[in-house]
């Protein structure tokens, strides 16, 4: 099959879309992949546990 002509012609100078840039950047992915669960699961979870009241 043929390389899609107008696509490959324009590809040289076309900027990479931001989402593709993110997906092509391993260290960004590591960063968000650790940040999300740390905030939503671990930190929020620990806050919940700490705030459990002592029995009266």
């Amino acid at each position: 099959m043929q390389r899609n002509d107008n696509q490959s012609a324009t590809q040289g100078d076309e900027p990479i879309p931001p989402m593709q840039q993110l997906l092509d950047n391993p260290f960004m992915l590591v960063f968000i992949g650790v940040l999300f669960p740390t905030v939503f699961y671990i930190l929020w979870g620990i806050m919940e546990i700490i705030s459990i009241p002592a029995v009266k």
């Binding site: 993110l22 997906l23 992915l29 999300f36 669960p37 699961y41 919940e48 459990i52």
Partner: peptide, 22 residues
Amino acid sequence: LLYILFLQLASAHHILADPGVS
């Protein structure tokens, strides 16, 4: 990417029957 962002949250599956966490 959705895995990277969200999959790990499901660790909570194991805490569903636990006391104290809202």
